[in-house]
């Protein structure tokens, strides 16, 4: 109980402080910024009926979020499917590393806003273009962490695999993957954070339904409170995803 009080109350005070500043700014300095109360008032139909569908771009906030989550899930899955084996190859083969490390270092800092048009050119449709963009932007932490994990496998384990003459498959499943798993999961967690970050940009540019698309549409319709609603939703979902991955990660560390 004491521990709860110790952890919970400071967080609550922090959140209230931000709401306070928000209210102050909207009342004193930025008349176009809706106050917390007004935001709540205008967001009610979206929050209280979160799965309602009234039109293409007029849907409950969780319904919108579910579109975004599904889109992220696909792009993220693609990122892991490509990024994990790539990380293994980079970690295991110095030749492969020398070949592709420069390419990766160049691709890594490219913004989603740059990839999306290329995706649209390649696929001619917004959905695959969005998946392409999410995958390309979010896979790097998985690639780099998996590579680091493979490289930091102690020589002892390599020696054991060698003297037991493990087949490549057994070496992978019994030694390399278990030894790398904690690093891989750190990469997965960072990648998921990035994937969620990218989704908003993708939806804004393509105008597809989702939290990001909703945010952009409401900006164009001058309903600013819904921008704030979208921002809060994005933040809360991102936080939730990170906590989930953190839980999975801590399980692994114990094992």
């Amino acid at each position: 109980m004491k521990k709860l009080a110790f952890n919970f109350f400071p967080s609550l005070i922090g959140i209230l402080a931000v709401f306070g500043i928000w209210a102050l700014v909207s009342a004193q300095f930025a008349p176009d910024l809706p106050s917390p109360a007004k935001t709540w008032e205008e967001s009610k139909p979206y929050v209280l009926a979160p799965f309602e569908k009234r039109g293409e771009m007029d849907q409950g906030i969780l319904r919108m979020a579910s579109y975004s989550l599904w889109r992220v899930a696909k792009g993220y899955a693609l990122a892991l499917l490509i990024g994990t084996p790539l990380g293994f190859c980079l970690g295991l083969s110095p030749l492969f590393f020398r070949m592709f490390d420069p390419v990766i270092q160049i691709l890594r800092p490219i913004s989603p806003l740059a990839w999306l048009p290329l995706g649209l050119v390649l696929f001619r449709q917004s959905e695959p273009a969005a998946h392409f963009t999410i995958a390309l932007c979010s896979m790097w932490p998985t690639v780099v962490n998996t590579m680091t994990g493979v490289r930091s496998i102690p020589q002892d384990y390599h020696n054991v695999a060698a003297v037991l003459r493990l087949s490549p498959w057994k070496r992978l499943t019994k030694v390399l993957i278990p030894a790398t798993l904690p690093y891989m999961f750190t990469g997965f967690r960072l990648s998921l954070g990035l994937a969620w970050l990218v989704i908003v940009a993708c939806e804004m540019l393509t105008g597809t339904p989702g939290v990001g698309g909703f945010l952009w549409q409401e900006y164009n319709s001058l309903i600013y409170s819904h921008i704030l609603l979208s921002i809060l939703t994005i933040g809360l979902i991102g936080y939730g995803l990170d906590r989930l991955m953190g839980l999975a990660e801590s399980r692994l560390r114990i094992a």
Binding site: D156, N159, V163, R165, V175, A255
Partner: peptide, 19 residues
């Protein structure tokens, strides 16, 4: 190269910690 007919015990136990 290594062979199963020549088994080795290392200074550190070198067990796989996940097994």
């Amino acid at each position: 190269g290594p062979a199963l007919s020549r088994a080795i015990v290392f200074q550190s136990p070198s067990l796989l910690p996940w097994l």
